[in-house]
Design a protein around this nucleic acid. Structure first.
Lengths: 168, 168
DNA sequence: TCCTTTACGTTGAAGCTTCAAGTACTGTAG
DNA sequence: CTACAGTACTTGAAGCTTCAACGTAAAGGA
């Protein structure tokens, strides 16, 4: 990805410049290692994957601690399929219940009392880990930069996904 | 993770402030969606996972297109186990060969000619995707910010992992 | 009403990752 | 030279995610 390997494609590819290369490597390191570290901590301390924890956390903050599956999937950055499998697992653990919606198709995921307890119990150690892994290394200015940059990145990501989905 | 659920732990937990919360959500969205988008593109266009692509790319840029497995694992942000499984798969595809190191224990992963061709062929579309998913949304200043922030984040991540590994 | 399209969700299989255990080789201390 | 420890890597099983296919119910015409 560094040099211009020519002659393979119709038009010469626009490669990344040096700064973009650097940024890209950091981004890859971040998106590979951070999830791994979060999973390690939660697996060790709460027997949860980070995705499971996040689903429970999102539910715990939703009005009435319930959310439609498709909405929950979007908020948890997951496919409906992935969410459905995980909700099944969380249901077996007694932390979530599925509930049909009356006037409409679709169903709700409802956090149970036991599920709420689970999040509340797991949260402190998890927050400590998040601090140790991320925020202890950033001053307030950097946190603000991260918000701005993060928003820009996620927004572009969504645009890029929308564009890429259409053409192919 | 938003409110202070008190009374569960010995000492009251230091929760994240509002800005950290925001930054954290963006970071999670980013680390969840970006890898998924990269995998989708590479799976569609090159029948590769992003991790496989990255391994091949790292090898293609290494001196003599070869690297010791443990070194490659570190550069690819992966465990040795994960890498070993993937190298086995890449070997079966004919893109990589394992080669024992003479004077020392350990072995090298060597990129074959066919493996090199594979990266070169896959790169252009991948770079286009990276552009569309990331860099088309950032100006030069933001790219520089991303480098700085990314380095800070990865560095803290490594410190946090080192600390967390020890205590348990 | 009937047909078609679209949104919502589930499911099983295939593939990838992690985890724990195991092999082998290399220093190093006694 | 023998025992011990550490490094490098492999392996199989278990678990998670993705993919593709399917079922179902609402909405939109004709």
């Amino acid at each position: 990805m560094t040099e211009t390997h020519e002659g393979t494609e119709p038009r010469s590819t626009r490669w990344l410049n040096d700064e973009q290369q650097l940024a890209w490597r950091e981004l890859i390191a971040l998106t590979t290692r951070l999830p791994a570290a979060l999973d390690t901590q939660l697996q060790r301390d709460a027997k949860l994957t980070h995705f499971e924890y996040f689903v429970l956390a999102v539910l715990s903050e939703a009005p009435d601690r319930r959310l439609q599956l498709s909405t929950l999937a979007a908020q948890a950055n997951a496919s409906l399929s992935r969410l459905s499998h995980v909700v099944t697992k969380l249901e077996k653990a007694g932390w979530v219940r599925r509930k049909a919606i009356v006037g409409s198709r679709g169903s709700l995921a409802v956090l149970t009392a036991s599920g709420y307890t689970k999040v509340v119990e797991s949260a402190p150690e998890h927050v400590e880990a998040v601090r140790a892994l991320v925020f202890d290394g950033l001053d307030d200015d950097q946190v603000r930069q991260l918000i701005t940059l993060g928003k820009a990145l996620v927004a572009q990501l969504d645009r890029g996904i929308a564009a890429g989905t259409g053409k192919a």
